[in-house]
């Protein structure tokens, strides 16, 4: 059964805004949330610095200092880092071979496709036991 990634509309809008802000470069960041029986519930999306300035149009490499700050925030809030998000400028929201090669198990990977007109697609993926991506279903979280 496909896992579910629960995301508030406000967080989705935030991702779209960052995707447009960074375009034509990639934007990236981390997601704080909680693991549940059927997936993860995202509480907050955070933007991170992309250290790969040489290939910022098609690669991302999250600053470890931003990772550390996000992890500390998660610990303080009693939640955890549940995944990673990044954008694919002018490219579908499917994991690339590079995404697959560099992915870690146990995290949701949210990918936003973005063009000059804005975010066109948002999909989520998670590694399975065979180190392949399975798609997760993105559901809009209850606004409460």
């Amino acid at each position: 059964m496909a896992q579910v990634l629960s995301l508030h509309a406000a967080e989705r809008r935030q991702l779209a805004a960052w995707a447009c802000d960074a375009y034509p470069h990639e934007a990236c960041g981390l997601m704080l949330g909680v693991s549940e029986a059927d997936g993860v519930r995202v509480l907050e999306v955070r933007r991170a610095r992309n250290l790969n300035v040489e290939r910022a149009r098609d690669r991302y490499d999250i600053d470890p200092a931003d990772y550390l700050a996000a992890e500390r925030e998660a610990t303080a809030r009693g939640c955890e880092l549940v995944g990673v998000w990044h954008t694919h400028p002018d490219h579908p929201a499917r994991p690339s071979p590079t995404d697959l090669a560099l992915a870690w198990p146990g995290w949701s990977y949210v990918i936003a496709a973005v063009t000059a007109a804005g975010m066109t697609e948002l999909r989520a993926w998670r590694l399975n036991g065979g180190h392949q991506f399975d798609e997760e279903s993105i559901e809009e979280a209850d606004p409460s």
């Binding site: 290939r55 098609d58 690669r59 470890p64 490219h91 590079t98 090669a101 990977y109």
Partner: peptide
């Protein structure tokens, strides 16, 4: 002491690069 996994990836493929994956297997894009 914090163990921090490198979090990286990317959208397009230019091909020809070889890298080591976090799982320890070589990967040729």
């Amino acid at each position: 002491l914090a163990i921090i996994p490198a979090v990286a990836g990317g959208g397009h493929e230019s091909g020809g690069c070889k890298t080591e994956s976090p799982s320890g297997t070589d990967y040729r894009a």
